[in-house]
Design a protein around this nucleic acid. Sequence first.
RNA 1: GCCCCCUUAGCUCAGUCGGAUAGAGCACAGGUUUCCUAAACCUGGGGCCAGAGGUUCGAAUCCUCUAGGGGGCACCA
Length: 609
Amino acid sequence: MEKSIYKSLIQMIQKVQGIGNCFPESAKIEIELPRQEAFGDLSTPLAMTLSKILRRKPREIAEEIIKLIDNKHVFEKIEIAGPGFINFTFSRTFIAEKLAELLNNADDCLKTNIGSGRKIQIEFVSANPTGPLHLGHGRGAALGGALSNLLKETGYQVVNEYYINDAGRQVKLLGLSVYARYRQLEDESYPFPEDGYKGDYIFDLAAEFARTNTKNSHIQNIADEFAKNTNKELISSLDKDELIAAITDFSYKKMLEDIKTDLESFGVVFDVWQSEKELFQKTEDRQQTAEDSKTMQQHGSTRASADGTSEVKRAIDDLRERGYIYEKDGALWFSSTSFGDDKDRVIVKNDGEYTYFASDIAYHRHKIEQKYDELIDIWGADHHGYIPRINSVIEALGYPKEKLRVLLVQMVTLLRAGVPVQMSKRSGEFITLKEVMDEIGPDTTRFLFLTRRPDSQLEIDIEVAKSQSQENPVYYVQYAHARINSIFEKAKETGAVELGTDAVSGAGLHSVKLPDFDPALFNDEEMRLIKKLLIYPMILKNAAIAHEPHRITFYLQELAAMFHPYYHRNRVVSEDRELTVARLNICKAVQIVLRHGFQILGVNAPDRM
RNA sequence: GCCCCCUUAGCUCAGUCGGAUAGAGCACAGGUUUCCUAAACCUGGGGCCAGAGGUUCGAAUCCUCUAGGGGGCACCA
């Protein structure tokens, strides 16, 4: 059930269209939030749009529409302005009714249902488990997490998924890098792979491997023994390949753990962690225990000949049956040009190895088979050239390419005091998401990402972010929330209004049943504040449709920017009981909306600051 | 060479499917606390929406070109 004022107006106009019978179906009803208060609460350029179609003057059409709506209960004023805008101003009683609905049944009021239960999967972050998450991943995580929450609140069933690239050369290289550092613990001259990962965390992994052990497999037992007795004779007696396999397994699992931990403290939770490696395994193998030592030995073995009935194989067979696979120059190709890609793409190289694209085909086919209505991939902008070929896959598999929507987040350039910091895992010089969270806090970090459009490049100066932390926008909004809490504490303390015993802090406030208010007591500033609250579902809806959570961030800032001045000008808790009740109702409503918005953004709503 | 994104106040950025007189924050200058949190509030200056054409009732928004910044063009991942 839709309760927003926005919806009410749309429905009313739709009814008009029915009655009038002169409005073509094709005319879209646009409802806007006027920039200026003089233009009312909501506005539509409908008459001007119709003017083109009907070849009549916009003002004449506007007159007719107004006559047909004529609802004194809902509208205090309907005016035609400018070239033909129709401006609606809601009546005080209607606004009061809507406020009461918000207070008494927030869940219904704030929940829109544009998704109507459709299943949607969002895949994001999906960083290779070969190093810590950096700031760019953080941006993707912030967007994905917020979008996921937003879509859940607007009627979708959402699944968050992380794709783990644990099968390719990068993980192998991680293992070799850690192995080299491990050997260097004993022998400093041991050569380090030329293109290995040079970050400090590689040393940490090597050291930790030497320290700890797991008990699951033969190889790990050897490694354990090795860790306890670091003498050179033992090194030479070991099967090097087995040791490397053990180290590789240890390293990427540890990295993945760290990534999970970072994401959790960042407030992002994934429902599914999909392993790329699994896509290469035979179905039977996958039903066995995942901790099997066999799994480890398969690192990097993405050879086409050894895959049995893996997902990858089935995906390729599927495409072959559809006629989009051919052989050339000893390699296997997918004819993505059939669907508008620039060139065809190799999926099995002439040395028999699969390309990354092969598992990506299998992965997206796998996703589609989960019966999602819609798939969203969030990628870094550096992968944009990949979009045509993955769209080709979707179409080749017989689905409309709209099934998948790829959202790009632009690059994050990190500065420290104005100087760009190079970010490369290979060179080892980069700022991790964790470091930034430690310095400026997860809330600020998320807010920072979510106050920008995803498709604009973002420069973050870590020094500036730190120095601004006292006057940070996130504190501004959080403070409004905390402040309302404190008002309620005051109200309870002074006994101005009867509140339940557990009603003061945190979730308790939400369950407070306030006495009814008298709308006649609201001043102009309060009316504006309430109207701002009632517009929130419209913001949610538009943000969800556009897949742009940052609109909520801006809305919350605007709301806080209305509340703080209001607080300064109007004493909430006073001798006047009726007035106090009326104002407490408004405060509670503001807090409900703030809390809801914070929840979507994944930012804390503190009771005290 | 081809493709994608960006260019709005000194700085960082919003600006809904093309709508009415383009907005915030920061920074800067000044002011506010016997009173529910001063992480707040109030007042002030700030703009050729990169440039040039076009589309129309109307353009920061759409199209073309130019300039500048970033990214991408593998049998790498």
